[in-house]
Amino acid sequence: MNIDFKDISVVIQGPVQAYQGRSQESGITHKCISSIRQYLPGATIILSTWEGLDCNGLEPDILLLNKDPGPTIDWYDAEGKPKLQNYNRQIVSTVEGLKRVTTPYAVKIRSDNFLTGNNFVAAQQAFPAREEPAKLFSQRVVVNTSYFRQYSNGQKVVMLPSDFFHFGLTEDLLKIWDIPLFTDRKFEPSKLGTPQYRGAPKPSPHPEQVYCNAWLMALDNTVPYLQHRHDHSPELLKYWERFIATNLVVLEPEQINLGLIKRFIPKNKRTNEICHQDWLLLYKKYCDKNSPISQLDVFKTIGWRRMFKQPFSYLKYQLLNKIKH
């Protein structure tokens, strides 16, 4: 099935200029809008940003100026100083945009990313085999490999997908982003002198894990609350593999045609991130046994570097742990 561009809405979410501690490349949101007009002609463009920001010169089809929900207190250091995360800002700017979508398909893209083509549209339909029991989305959702981690501190992790870019059915993107806002962590005076955060004293979950764990628990009541960053059992790891093999299409930015600003582009592919070949192996394992991919393909691309990098990362993590304690 070919998807017509007029059946796609693009939700551009986030600030359109430097905003409360977040730097912004000058003119990047204009570049984002222009790239959508060029590569998805006929698509509806929805810019979902904040009240008070200067949107002059930006010409989306729909402009949403949302009330800023502010940052969320995620944890406190040993002295009781709060650390903030923009959980609710990303939720509000994304979901308010998605709620205005009237087309069957939608893209979620950051206001500081842009398109270099439209390969992601065909890719969404290119992997038809799915494992029925693991289906939680009506169709596959295309996601980016950047910051989609398989490892952290040299250890396997689950529920850590990238949140830069999503493309799929609007109803499926709403399953990801239409979740309750997070509340501030309450300070406990009795714990002053030690850090207070989810998972303490083990490493706290990455923000992407916090998001993913929330929406995955809402979709499937068998999914457990993630206690800390490295929290998983063999059963949960298999569940996560089956989920991404069945419900996602995981592509490199250049395969998606996703343009990233310089600070998001590493000199070399990060070995802790999933690569497209990793995902293809999972697709073959759980969905299509005839898929032409092998472990050798992964080894030749990134696997040989992982053999050295991940054990070193784990050793570094263990040494730092001993020093702290």
Rank of each mutant, 00 (worst) to 15 (best):
G154Q: 05
Q155C: 05
K156W: 04
V157R: 04
V158S: 00
P161D: 08
P161H: 03
D163K: 11
D163L: 15
D163A: 09
F165E: 10
H166I: 02
F167L: 10
F167A: 09
G168D: 08
L169E: 08
L169I: 05
T170C: 11
D172G: 05
D172W: 09
L173K: 07
L174M: 11
K175A: 06
I176P: 00
W177A: 04
W177Q: 06
W177F: 13
D178M: 02
D178A: 02
I179G: 00
I179F: 09
P180G: 10
L181F: 11
T183N: 15
T183V: 14
R185Q: 06
R185A: 01
F187N: 06
P189M: 10
S190W: 10
S190I: 07
K191E: 15
K191Q: 15
L192A: 14
G193H: 13
T194E: 15
Q196D: 01
Y197T: 02
R198T: 01
G199T: 00
G199Q: 01
A200Y: 15
A200N: 10
P201C: 04
P201T: 02
K202H: 06
P203A: 03
P203D: 07
P203E: 03
P205R: 08
P207D: 07
Q209P: 02
Y211D: 07
Y211R: 08
C212W: 00
N213S: 14
W215N: 00
W215L: 07
W215Y: 15
M217D: 02
M217G: 08
L219G: 04
L219P: 09
D220L: 14
N221A: 13
N221F: 04
T222E: 10
T222R: 14
T222L: 08
P224W: 01
Y225W: 07
Y225T: 04
Y225G: 01
L226T: 13
Q227Y: 01
Q227P: 00
H228K: 08
H228N: 13
H228T: 09
R229A: 01
R229V: 02
R229W: 03
R229F: 00
H230P: 02
H232Q: 14
S233P: 09
P234V: 09
E235I: 12
E235V: 07
E235H: 09
L236H: 05
L237C: 04
K238P: 00
K238A: 14
Y239W: 13
E241Q: 15
E241A: 11
E241T: 08
E241P: 11
R242Y: 07
R242I: 05
I244P: 03
A245C: 04
A245I: 01
